[in-house]
Design a protein around this nucleic acid. Sequence first.
DNA 1: CTGAAAGCGCTTACAG
DNA 2: CTGAAAGCGCTTACAG
Lengths: 337, 337
Amino acid sequence: MPTTIHDVARRLHLSITTVSRALDGYDDVAADTRALVLRTVEEMGYTPNRAARQLRRQRSDTLGYILPAGKPQFSDPFFSEFIAGLGDEVAARNYELLVSAAPADSDEEKALYRRWVQGGKVDGLVITRTRLHDWRVQYLAGEHRPFVSMERSLDPVDFVGVETDSRKGIAQLLGHLTSQGHSRIGYIGASPDLKIQHDRLDAYRQGLASANIAAEAGLEATGDLTMEGGFRAAGQLLSQAGPPTAIVCINDLTAIGAMHAAHERGLVVGRDVAIAGFDGIGDSAHTQPPLTTLDQPVYNIARQLVQMLLGLIAGEQLSPRQVEIQPTLLIRASTGN
Amino acid sequence: MPTTIHDVARRLHLSITTVSRALDGYDDVAADTRALVLRTVEEMGYTPNRAARQLRRQRSDTLGYILPAGKPQFSDPFFSEFIAGLGDEVAARNYELLVSAAPADSDEEKALYRRWVQGGKVDGLVITRTRLHDWRVQYLAGEHRPFVSMERSLDPVDFVGVETDSRKGIAQLLGHLTSQGHSRIGYIGASPDLKIQHDRLDAYRQGLASANIAAEAGLEATGDLTMEGGFRAAGQLLSQAGPPTAIVCINDLTAIGAMHAAHERGLVVGRDVAIAGFDGIGDSAHTQPPLTTLDQPVYNIARQLVQMLLGLIAGEQLSPRQVEIQPTLLIRASTGN
DNA sequence: CTGAAAGCGCTTACAG
DNA sequence: CTGAAAGCGCTTACAG
């Protein structure tokens, strides 16, 4: 049986009230008493029972994050870094992080969100891979539950969170590619429901337009944010008549898969075909050749999201409520020298 | 304010006792009453408050997992896959998974374990990256708190968990390398505190011995399970006089870093130098060249660990209490054709 | 088959 | 400066 506050109080011939107040730093406790309590608590290895505290305080001191998808997408290093950021910031603020996984827009996902919110498991939630019309956003806003999101959906909701500006970064990347002489530039995206697909495809088309290059439907392919998806989509692009000489990918995993497809066809990436990604995952520096990518500070974004969410929970007036991040173009050998 | 059991009971003119019993599937509730309760609960979107249930039942229905290390190691895909396995199995069993991260053997790590155990946050814990003498193991055993581990420590404790047999796999790998004509075979490991380092270095030496190759201290290097560490250690091995023609690495990340170091020296991996890893992370199939590795079914190991842990918590007699896993040698281009 | 009551371990007005 | 008491929302013996 773990030690309870009663055990501590009994040992010291104090009331549990005093013990509790001494621990929580109230200033109406005698300095001697507080010191005694702290010492004894340390000695006895007492930690307040979280469930009791939570029930009484009507909050859980826990944030929730539900990863999109089961196994495949999970292993995107993007998420490892993201969770690391969430975990570190949460720990620094004495909160806990509850993590689970469910396929995007599935019944499991809905059940999980409902259980966590209605069961009071979490005080707030972090959302990623936001969809254009996102059930989660509408639900959480409707329940008046604090949440922050990476990327906004189109739902008419007052968002708090971080948004990556794909537009400028991709324009910059296309500038780099056209300056290298590329004019047949393809794009591999993902499901049209995703906000990032919406933004990045749009940015790609705009970038072509401002370089006076006509868009071609045959140069746009669809993956699923995984290496496998990138591999397949690049296979299609590269095996058609008039293949692209450069491919812009929605994320790094897609790009790594695309590189693999190019290699398989005997193409030398960086010489015969240029390939670029988005995210700047750690592995992107270690591929062969190293991958040109639009680097997002994922770890720091995660920490910032936690800070914003805790601010929301504390009822602070945040400003700004939306932080815009500019990705950094890292030019590496996969798009020539 | 979320709906409580009182709201449901009031609406139905029933007692909270009956509502609770109907929901929990007790068989002494009239079929009609149960149906009514279930329907109403669905309608009102009621979910029992977890903190209250937990406090009353004296258990949390939550398992805990604390990742080793802060940022760097975290991004090992090994852990993403591992957490995915934990998450999926936990969800299937209606448990929750609490995840945090702390550097191995640090004060933060100790504080976290103590907080979770003593505060009743978790009913049981999963341990990985077990050290030869592991504080966590001793602590949890001393507190009689259920836990399972991947790899056993040398502590005199009755372990439940999964153990990968490095020996046979590495023997097999060395057989493969010597059959390719290699006799100068190096090894890149990690901290000697780690059980896997202990096992794999030992297996490497034994494998050399049984091939009648004398061990050379100069062919053994130390990394830290990251690409960076592998890169540095391989740099040392390859820049000495009489460099190895093959390198066995403690894990895949180390191997990927080592491949990078070889490339940088103008060596063609698979032709000029053979490099092999351990883990079989997804990326290992997509490196250039693809990486020979000892594949562990990480995702399934994680699921199995959860099953074992839930068995322990339920007080079942497990058999076997230790499952031994044989890794599968995947021969790919990084060790020749 | 249903309900009244106790109690899990805390925190926090309130009284002195 | 300290303590007695209420109550957070459940589950579960117990009584009928």
